[in-house]
Structures are given as structure tokens and as C-alpha cells.
């Protein structure tokens, strides 16, 4: 949205279809959730207003707190591994010739696989008896993701790194490609080392795309559901039971509308706050 645009309030007519469709898919459902969250519902005709009781219950629930801590740790680990790794691979990616197309397609491939199939792939790959990964690790240390909590966590983390680092690679690669050649020629004339070139030319120019990368990776890792659901089902015990998994268990499994509604709203709120903080910090620092 660059400026110099005409002022033209009739443009609202062009935006109207979007507003209507998003109202139907987002606002009405969200209002329904708000409605659930303040009532105790026994049947469609038998409900009482309970105010903020559900919110208090949910905020105090040790199971919810455990899931929140796990999800936060998971998101932090995901960011710490995927962002540096993605930038490294992007710097190493070929830049000229036919290998560029091949490299782009290979890197993008994991992103286009349905999320439950990603789960299936790793369910097979990490098994000690029939999977290459699990079999190889088993040669060194005892590894079984269905029984051992630490192994389950590592499997889910490895799966996420496998699945989503390509997104960071693609974004960083696009950012690197947009740096004009004279920058590098100047660096070369000055005799800058590869590290100095990266630190003072490439990294600063990656700010924009890395902001998007960090935001997207935070949001998606914080909302992760399908992949761990397929691989571990939240187990063993509740070792990999993240917020989404717990929420859908309460909502669809037990059909507890009130607590599920309150849980949903708090969850949404946390995502929004953390994204807002990230966004503000990243766009302000270095200005």
C-alpha cells in the first residue's frame, strides 16, 4: 500500500464482497464463540448466563497451563532452529542456471504436502521397525516415539523443521535476490570477507522478509494441530499435547461448549498479542 493513491470512497463497493465473505466465515463464528463462552449450555433451550466463570476456570486449569507452556517452548525452539537454518540454506542456494528451478521446486515440495500426510510420512519414517530415520537412530541410541516422551517431542520437532524450514529458505532467498549487484561489487572492492558481506549487506536487507517469516512461523507453530495429531495423538501421556490438540479435544470430543469457547478466545488473544509484539519490535528495531 504505497501512497499517492486517489481518495475514492466508492472503492468500498469493490471491497464489499470480501467483507461479506469474511463476515460469514469469521465474524459470525467468532460471535458464536463469544456467546458460548459466557453461558452454561445444557441444551439449546436450557442455558444460563455465567459471566466470566469459564474464563477463570480455563485460566486456572493445570492441563491448559501445561499445554500453553509446551506450545510456547515448541514455538521458541521452532524459531531458534528454523530461522538461522533457513537463512544459511538460502545463502547457499544456487543463483544461476537451470539448477535454480530444480532447487526451488525441491525446496518448496514439503510445503505442498497435506499436513496430515506430513504426519503420515514421519509416522512411517520415524518408526524403529519400518522407518529409515527411526531405524538409523535406533542403531545408535534406543528410540521409540510411541513410548518415550522425549523421543516423541524430538520427532514432532524434527518433522516441523523438515516441513517448514523451506518456507524460511524461500522467503530469505527472495530477499537475497532483490539485493542489487553493485552492493556486492562494492564489498568486493573493499575486500570484505564473506562473513562481513553477509553481516553488513545481506542480513540488513533481509529484515522485511524475515519479519514475515518469523510472524508466519510463530503463528503456524503456535496453532500446530494436524501433524502431531497424526504422529503422536498428543501422547505419550500428554507429552506432545499442544493447545490446539487440547482445545479440539474439549470442543469436539467432550462437547463442553462454555469452556471451549472461553479457551478459544483466550487462545486467539494470546496469538494476536504475541504477533503484535513481534511485529512492533521487528519493525522498530534498527530504524
Amino acid at each position: 500500500m504505497s501512497d499517492g493513491r486517489q481518495k475514492h470512497n466508492r472503492a468500498w463497493w469493490l471491497v464489499l464482497p470480501v467483507v461479506v465473505s469474511v463476515a460469514f466465515t469469521a465474524i459470525i463464528p467468532l460471535m458464536t464463540v463469544v456467546n458460548y463462552s459466557v453461558q452454561d449450555i445444557f441444551s439449546p433451550f436450557d442455558r444460563i448466563f455465567v459471566g466470566l466463570d469459564w474464563f477463570r476456570d480455563v485460566a486456572r486449569d493445570p492441563e491448559v497451563r501445561g499445554a500453553l507452556v509446551r506450545t510456547l517452548i515448541f514455538s521458541a525452539q521452532v524459531l531458534l532452529i528454523e530461522i538461522p537454518l533457513g537463512v544459511l540454506i538460502a545463502v547457499c542456494m544456487p543463483r544461476r542456471g537451470w539448477t535454480v528451478s530444480v532447487a526451488l521446486v525441491l525446496v518448496a515440495l514439503p510445503l505442498l504436502i497435506p499436513w496430515n500426510v506430513v504426519g503420515t510420512i514421519w509416522q512411517i519414517f520415524a518408526r524403529g521397525d519400518i522407518g529409515l530415520g527411526g531405524w538409523a537412530v535406533n542403531k545408535v541410541v534406543n528410540f521409540n516415539y510411541t513410548l518415550d516422551s522425549a523421543d516423541a517431542w524430538i520427532t514432532v520437532l524434527a518433522m516441523d523443521v523438515w516441513h517448514w524450514t523451506p518456507l524460511v529458505v524461500l522467503l530469505a532467498y527472495a530477499g537475497l535476490r532483490s539485493i542489487p549487484d553493485p552492493y556486492f561489487q562494492a564489498a568486493q572492492i573493499d575486500g570484505a570477507s564473506a562473513w562481513a558481506t553477509f553481516r553488513h549487506i545481506q542480513l540488513p536487507r533481509l529484515r522485511g522478509v524475515l519479519t514475515i517469516a518469523i510472524l508466519l512461523r510463530f503463528m503456524d507453530s503456535f496453532m500446530i494441530y494436524t501433524e502431531p495429531f497424526v504422529v503422536t495423538g498428543g501422547g505419550p501421556g500428554n507429552a506432545t499435547s499442544f493447545l490446539s490438540i487440547l482445545l479440539s479435544k474439549i470442543a469436539v470430543g467432550q462437547f463442553d461448549l462454555g469452556p471451549a469457547g472461553a479457551f478459544s478466545l483466550l487462545y486467539f488473544l494470546i496469538v494476536q498479542i504475541v504477533c503484535y509484539v513481534f511485529f512492533t519490535v521487528l519493525t522498530r528495531s534498527g530504524r
Binding site: V18, V22, A26, I28, P29, L30, T32, V33, Y36, M219, F222, M223, Y225, L243, S244, L247, S248, A251, V252, L257, A260, G261, S264, L265, Y267, F268, V271, Q272, C275
Partner: peptide
């Protein structure tokens, strides 16, 4: 505001979608 819909955990919308 449109982007914030991208931030909504899908799990939040399960119940209302189901019922609506």
C-alpha cells in the same frame, strides 16, 4: 484486520462452523 484472520487458530472455529 484481514490478516488477523490468518492468525486465528482453526481449532477456534471448529464448533461454530459445525453448528452453523
Amino acid at each position: 484486520w484481514l490478516l488477523t484472520n490468518r492468525m486465528a487458530p482453526p481449532a477456534v472455529f471448529l464448533l461454530p462452523f459445525f453448528q452453523i
